[in-house]
Each structure stands twice: as C-alpha cells, then as structure tokens.
Design a protein around this nucleic acid. Structure first.
Lengths: 345, 345
DNA sequence: CTGAAAGCGCTAACAA
DNA sequence: TTGTTAGCGCTTTCAG
C-alpha cells in the first residue's frame, strides 16, 4: 500500500504538505496540489482510514443489525439504508442475529470495536444487558421492534392499528369467528399486533374466545401448522388474520397445497405485501407497509443525529442522547380477492 | 471510550502488560490477567480496531458488492456470506452499485480505504479500469457475473447450460416456436444464457428465427412488455423462456393481469425459484439455482485465500494472486404446471 | 513475570 | 507557502 510518505519522498516534500494538498487545503499552491494529485493517482494512493480514525475522525460506517436479510422486510431496509448512507458518503456494515441474543451481542461488540458512528438495530426480544452497555455511547435507533433498555429512539409501524384494520375489515364483511396466527408476545411488536386483534374483536362485540395461535414469529411453519389446526377445529373460523410475513407465507403455501377454498371456506388477510401476494390464488388481501420510506427516514434521522452529536457532545449526565424520538408509520389495507363475506351456514 | 491505558492506570500497570493480559499471553500471571479482565469488564473496554490495524493487523471485514440487495439472489448471497464470515469472526460491508459503474467505483474505493481484507463482487457489465486497479492488491472473487480485468477468480452458475435445459424441456414437449426474453449481451452472463437458448434451438433442428427480446436485465418491465410483444406477433411463440429473475417476475405479473392462458395459450419457463413461483397460476416451471451454496462456497474460498495470501505473500511479479479458480454450479429444472405440449393448431 | 519505547499513517498545532 | 513535531491506541521488540 502506498502511503502519503511515499508521495512525499517522490516529490521531496513533507508528509504534511502532501496531506494538506490531498485535503485541498487553501494554504497549498495550486501547482503543488497538482503534482501531488498526479503522483497520488499514479501510485494508486488510497487514504488509510484506520490512520485517519486514530486521529479522531469519525468512522464513515454505520451498522445495520437485523435478524435475517433474506426476509424481504430487512432486505428492503438494507437497501434503503445503503442508499441513504451512500449519498452521505457512508457505508453499511451488515450484521445478522438470526434472532439469537448471543449472536446479537457478538455483532454489536464487533460494531463497537469497529467504532462505527451509528447503529440501526432490529433487536431480539430480550437483548442481553451488555448490548445496551455497548450501544449506549453510540448513536443508535431501533427499527420496527422496540425493546426497553436500548435507548428511546425508534422507527416503526403502528403494529396494533394495522392488525386492527385487518380485523375490522373482516368484521365489516360479516365474519363473527376470526382466527389470528402470529408471534408470541415476547416480542413487543407481536404483542401489539395481538392487542390490535383483541381490540377489534372486542369493539365489534364478538365473543372473546376467538381462536389465536401464537408461536415463533419468523417461521413459515407456524403459518402452515396454525392454519391446519384452525381448520381442523370442530368450530373453525370463517376468516384468518396473519400477524407476520413468514406466517403469511406459510398460510399461502398450506392453502395452495391443500387446495383450500379461499375465500369460500375461509377468508385470509396477509401481513406485508410481498412480490407474489397479488397473484396468489384470488389475490391476497393484505396489509402493505412502507418499509422503504420507513428505513429511509430512519437512516436520515440517524445521520442527522450523528452529525449533531459530534458537535454538541454529550449531555450533563454523560450519556450521549437526544430528545427521545419515535416515528410511527401507518400501514394500508390492500383489498384483493382472498376476503369475502362468510358462507351462509 | 476507555483504552488499555485507562485500565493500566487503574491497576498501576503498564499498557503493555494490560495488552498482553487481554491477549491471554502466557507470560502474564493468572492473577494479573484476572484483575485486568475484571477492570476491563467494569469499564466496558472494547479494543480499538483502528489502532490494531495500524499495527498491521488485517481488517476483519470483507466487502460485498452487489447491484441491489432487494433482489433475492443477492439477499441470499448477503445472508450466506455474513453467515460464513460470522463463524470466522469476520464482518460484511454491504455495497450496492445499482448496476452503475460510477457507483461501483465509489464503493470499491471506499472498501479499499477501509483496508478490507477481501471482496466479493457482482460486477457491472464493464467496470471502470480504476476498479481493477483498486481491487488488484485485495483478494477478491467475482460472483455470478464474470468480466475480464477483475482477476481470474469466479464463482458462478452454468448460465448457458441452464437456459439450454429450459429450452430442451420445451422442445421435448413439442414446441417448435419458442420465445426468449433476457438481458442484453453486454453482460457476459446474459450472453451465455442467450447462447444456451440458441444452442438448444439449433440442436433441435428448429428454425433459427426464434423470437428473442433483449433489454435491461434487471427490470420487471422487460418481462411484461416483452411478453406482450411476443404474444401480439402474427406468428406468436407457443412457449417462452425467461432469462432473468426480474424478467420472470414481469412475465408473471403480465400474464396474471391479462389472464393469459398458461400453459394453454403459451408455456412459460422461469428463471430462479423465488417464493411464490410455486403458487403462481398452475405453478411455474422454472430453473432453480443453488444461490446459498454458491455464496457459501465463494465465501469459504475467499477466506481461505485471505489467510494463505497473508502468509505466503505476493508472487514474483508483485501482483497478489493464486491459481485461477472458478466454480460452476449447475441449476435444476423444476417442472410444474406452466409448461405443457403446444395446443394443436 | 513486567516495563519502556518504538512505530504503524495520518492530521493539526506550532514554527519558519 | 511549506516543514517539524507530536500523538491517536495498540502490539511488539528489547530490557530488565
């Protein structure tokens, strides 16, 4: 690797002159700048970021911590974030937790060691305390999921309202027995979604023994087995609401495989609007979420926070902070063919 | 940020002792190690990677350069790579080019500045020469696409064979007029796929005026407009082969929107096996590709190369290299309902 | 078993 | 306009 020193020696200059020329410092003559840049080009000089950081420069990288980037929610987020960071000359370090808290700790520790200047994290249900300690001095924001202990900043969707909308839609169609399949309440988002379901059921004056099936949120297995279980019930629901993308996928696979009559035998409302949901069977009625915009806003906010916190420093009690900020994005119900009034019994 | 010096002062030790204790050097007494680790824990010490790199340590990060991580091929790759790197305590820097060569240069430059120890790249059709110069001293592999100038190492699929298989399948069903929609030949992969199509057509003794439509490879638009164009032809094909995932998506959307009779009016063979392809209409006959395995193998090879190149250094002519390595993975044809013998005319 | 000192590449304060 | 010097945090000789 060629260094500034190499350039300096080639031109009989001092390293600092070279450094300044490269930084386009006004004190350096135009001619010197030209020669320096020429030689730099010629030798293929690239600044050493590590050295620059040793001098106190902020790292131009932010960490993105997600459960699994294959999940299209998170790949959309990854895209939007790299995009947002790119225009600000920043890079994104991609970290996957697999929803495992030990792995999450490893990732965050590595990000801390890399001195990243910010972190966007979709946390596990209950992050280890050390994660909070590591993150504390780094500007960070939670995305989608929000757990206590990881700082007050959060960008997410209105989980509760979104499932409420889905359920209300079914109620309006005349359904009185509605199933819900979603994640266990360990995750705050899953809890909010279930609450939305319950709330809509109660508001509609329906019996409160509506069948709900909760399980590991990010497995398509739950969707398939859940739907199977619901439909095998002596008193099966006439409609089912899905509480996660993966569950929705499982639902669709199962219904397709068993050639379940949708919406004849049962109406289905999905979660998220993935490619293919529109062409599934009669078209899937589903909740569409503005993931790209959400992540973009989140990235922009983080960048803003990074630049301001660099100037103003930390507050009185020593913890770097800012006014707690949360942003809640709404979802939209897309009506397609998978929902209809219940069959007459 | 607490440094090793902070720990040293707290314990009235020298920085070097602390450093050694942290590195579990055998010359340090067990008791000192214990005390050091205790204080380190207490102060939340995290090593400064920049400082370590200044001392010559290799960076534990590899760059991944892809056109767009929302494309499920690439998100699968991103996942497999972070996974592979994770077990070796490495991290992945995610870079998107949007298939733009200027952006590609920016990304690679940033990776070089970060002193990443390796790069996996899905290059643009014709990378700028400087990209090659920057990459030259860094162990790197091309993935999927292979262009000349970026080093001889490549992990990809047998693009030619894969489309050949798709076409042969249609020939066997009795089709004699087959359309192909794929990327322009600027991309070597796209050229190979088209060659596979032509080769199968020729081998089957079909007329060589089979309709082919080429365009920007990563737009669903091409799939939709291409299929429309083919079906509007006075002499339309009885089957269509798709040459990319995005084209396939476009095909499916168009066929669904226009309620095209598949396979009655036309048989369809897709590219890639995305979620949802199985439940599209009668089920999509398609080429399934082992992206996860491919990326895993690619990552493992790169790691191996990184560790060996660190030891053996560069070869005689100063360019770091290794025996040119390429790995070609095969695809598998998944037969579902979207292909059938042509209707009798 | 532990300490002192040098140096990685860069930038910024201080000199000239 | 350019040069000299110091120092960021760590590892690694070389001395005790």
């Amino acid at each position: 690797m060629t260094t500034a020193r190499d350039i300096a020696e080639r031109l009989n200059l001092s390293v600092s002159t070279v450094g300044r020329a490269l930084a386009d410092d006004r004190r350096i003559s135009a001619e010197t700048k030209l020669r320096v840049n020429q030689v730099a080009e010629e030798l293929g000089y690239v600044v050493n970021r590590a050295a620059r950081m040793m001098r106190g420069a902020r790292s131009p990288v932010v960490g993105l911590v997600v459960p699994d980037v294959r999940n299209s929610f998170y790949s959309t987020v990854a895209h939007a974030l790299t995009e947002t960071m790119g225009v600000r000359d920043h890079q994104v370090m991609l970290c996957e937790t697999g929803d495992d808290k030990r792995s999450e700790l490893r990732q965050v520790r590595d990000l801390a060691a890399a001195q990243v200047s910010g972190v966007v994290i979709v946390p596990t249900a209950r992050p280890l305390p050390e994660v909070a300690r590591l993150l504390q001095p780094i500007p960070h924001v939670q995305l989608l999921r929000k757990v206590s202990g990881l700082g007050p900043h959060w960008f997410g969707i209105d989980d509760r309202r979104v499932i409420e909308m889905a359920t209300e839609h079914l109620v309006e169609l005349g359904h009185r027995r509605i199933g819900y399949i979603g994640g266990t309440v360990a995750l705050p988002t899953a809890a909010a979604r279930l609450a939305g379901f319950t709330s809509a059921v109660t508001a509609a004056g329906l019996p409160d023994d509506q069948p709900t099936i909760l399980g590991p949120p990010s497995s398509t297995e739950l969707g398939a087995s859940g739907l199977h279980q619901l439909m095998s019930d002596p008193n099966p629901p006439t409609a089912v609401v899905s509480g996660s993308v993966q569950v929705t996928r499982g639902l669709l696979e199962y219904a397709h495989r068993t050639t379940l009559d949708v919406p004849g035998a049962v109406s289905l409302v999905g979660f998220g609007d993935e490619v293919g949901f529109s062409w599934w069977g009669p078209g899937l009625t589903t909740i569409s979420l503005p993931m790209h915009d959400l992540a973009t806003a989140c990235g922009a906010w983080l960048m803003h926070r990074i630049s301001t916190s660099a100037v103003s420093g930390n507050d009185a009690n020593g913890t770097s902070s800012a006014a707690p900020y949360s942003s809640v994005s709404p979802g939209v119900l897309i009506e397609r063919g998978s929902t209809a009034p219940p069959a007459l019994s």
